[in-house]
């Protein structure tokens, strides 16, 4: 068994084409950091009084927190060669399930358990359908997108469910050493995600399965099981995100998490993760999320309209990916 693991290590390193240092994101993410710096300069120039305010940064980080956690799960799925279109719907379903009257009667811990369990279970269903049912992940999660949101609507009867449990409501306003709970959750989730991806067998298997599933299978990896676990992990991330969005909005609703799939995939891709699987970084994903939230913040500070925001979002995705490709090519050359 030990032998296989060593082989697997080598396989992932050669197939994925990424060394540990690359996965840290020290060179690949230069393009993104440049975009982020540009955004900061733009924010500072256009609204000098409000942008650099400490509270404003906390607002940005809190906005980034929910989609950030979803994107961490998405990073695993995409590196593993899949795609998860159902993340927004799972967030909605978990948010509704955990805020029903029955759930709320069980208090804070019952609610937390419901969010996480519903997210994980839905992810598991995705994983089983894709790994063992042999349905392409695009289709399986598309089906889940529709049905999970439908179920959320069915359970909530289309109504916004307001949280009355005060312990839960205070979750949003609490902080750890001045850092809001939500931001702490993002940092913890991203750090664990980074560790699991880069420092554990599970992470190495993820790169291997996404890079070349056939080679991974020959190397003794249970590819199906790994795929199933990746989607379950994404579901768990959605469950955590549901806790956060419910705390922020004090409600559970079937409209929560609308278009999260696009935001998360966008962040992951501009973060340098290959949609073909097998390569990507957690740091890049977090930077990708930050680019989007900082941009939104700057637009609101300058009182610009939504249509302009959307145009800019599209341009930024293209720009960041172009920059990313450039620096990546450079760094690939250097490593070769």
């Amino acid at each position: 068994m030990n032998d296989t693991v060593t082989t697997l290590d080598e396989t992932s390193a050669s197939n994925g084409g990424t060394s540990w240092r690359d996965r840290l994101g020290d060179t690949q993410n230069l393009g993104l950091i440049a975009v982020l710096v540009l955004a900061f300069v733009a924010g500072w120039v256009t609204s000098p009084d409000t942008f650099l305010d400490a509270n404003n940064f906390l607002t940005i980080l809190k906005s980034a927190a929910v989609i950030g956690v979803v994107s961490v799960g998405m990073t695993f799925v995409i590196i593993g060669g899949g795609i998860d279109l159902s993340v927004g719907a799972i967030v909605a379903l978990a948010s509704v399930w955990g805020t029903t009257v029955a759930s709320q009667e069980m208090g804070l811990w019952g609610m937390l358990f419901a969010f996480l369990a519903v997210g994980t279970a839905t992810g598991l269903v995705n994983g089983v359908l894709i790994a063992y049912g042999k349905i392409v992940s695009f289709i399986a999660t598309l089906a889940m997108l529709v049905s999970a949101r439908g179920l959320a609507q069915y359970i909530s009867d289309g109504q916004t469910q307001i949280v009355e449990v005060s312990a839960f409501r205070s979750l949003n306003n609490g902080d750890v050493f001045g850092i809001p709970n939500l931001v702490v959750m993002l940092i913890v989730v991203a750090a664990i995600g980074w560790f699991v991806l880069n420092r554990t067998t599970f992470g190495r298997r993820t790169f291997a399965v996404g890079g070349n599933p056939e080679a991974a299978r020959l190397a003794g990896i249970n590819v199906k099981r790994q795929t199933m676990l990746l989607f379950t992990l994404s579901g768990l991330a959605c469950g955590i995100a549901a806790i956060m969005i419910v705390a922020r909005t004090t409600t559970g609703s079937s409209t929560h998490g609308n278009l999260y799939e696009l935001d998360a995939i966008g962040a992951v891709v501009i973060g340098g993760t290959s949609l073909a699987g097998g390569r990507g970084t957690m740091v890049g994903t977090v930077l990708g999320v930050l680019v989007f939230t900082v941009m939104t913040n700057i637009f609101v500070l300058n009182n610009l309209t939504t249509d302009l925001q959307n145009i800019a979002k599209g341009v930024i995705i293209v720009l960041a990916v172009l920059l990313q490709q450039r620096t990546q090519r450079g760094s690939d050359g250097a490593h070769a």
């Binding site: 607002t59 906005s63 609703s253 939104t296």
Partner: peptide, 20 residues
């Protein structure tokens, strides 16, 4: 600022607007 008639969008937009 425009939200999307959903609780989540209302929260998001307002959080930024209050900073502005």
């Amino acid at each position: 600022q425009a939200a999307e008639f959903t609780v989540e969008s209302g929260q998001q937009v307002t959080a930024n607007l209050l900073q502005a």
